[in-house]
Design a protein around this nucleic acid. Structure first.
Lengths: 120, 120
DNA sequence: CGGGATCCGTCACGATACTG
DNA sequence: CAGTATCGTGACGGATCCCG
């Protein structure tokens, strides 16, 4: 959420656009995750990108961050109600993409990659 | 549509991600548009970006390009069935963004910009 | 009218190393 | 464990000029 929007679509893309946000979002569903868990679950992301994206999502009100004053440190990230409402949006987007892939030449699905079953 | 996808969401973002694609898409609905029309309707886009995005969308099977062998040249762009199906996806995304804007501090809507009423 | 070609700046993204 | 700091790169987006 940065400047003025002339349409809700811009806001939506601003908030979940980019390479990682939506992946993180659906890894945060349905339960809270620790930083280390996310790092493992979001395959291929670097720590820098993960913390950066999480910060933006916290600032955008999609994710809640809870730090426990312990040693060793523990931080849990969870979805806010706004973040949860986004999830209902991701489902049809994922369905559309899946249909698109199979109609446009099924060769492009990646069978050996870990099955991301919670998509859809 | 470039590499292998592990999830439909990646495909969706690949196809309508970026700054311009979804704006062009909904300007193409419900009727075909000429290149010059699009250039005026998609406020702020340069010719280079417009033609570049259109080409990608044609390659991705979302948009159909029809050139008339006339002088002066005339080219019309329209949505393919796949492109039309995307429109049903954009509507909820736009609604979500609008709700997000008003809940997160209504100052971020842009009143003086031309009302993009066909959104939603 | 509907493009194509070229040059260029920015920034999203990434690799690596270090820290409380 | 959960970050922070630094550096590098390429794709994305824009400006400008040219063409059939």
């Amino acid at each position: 959420m940065r400047e003025a929007y002339s349409c809700g679509l811009e806001a939506t893309f601003d908030v979940i656009g980019g390479k990682w946000k939506f992946v993180i979002l659906w890894r945060l569903h349905p339960e809270a995750r620790r930083f280390g868990e996310l790092k493992r679950l979001v395959v291929g992301i670097t720590e820098k990108m993960l913390i950066q994206q999480l910060r933006e999502m916290v600032a955008d009100g999609l994710v809640h961050r809870r730090a426990y004053p312990e040693i060793p440190p523990r931080v849990e990230y969870s979805l806010t109600p706004m973040g949860i409402s986004l999830k209902d949006l991701l489902a049809p987007m994922c369905e559309w993409g899946s249909r698109y892939i199979e109609q446009m030449g099924g060769k492009d699905l990646c069978p050996e990659s870990e099955p991301q079953t919670e998509c859809v």
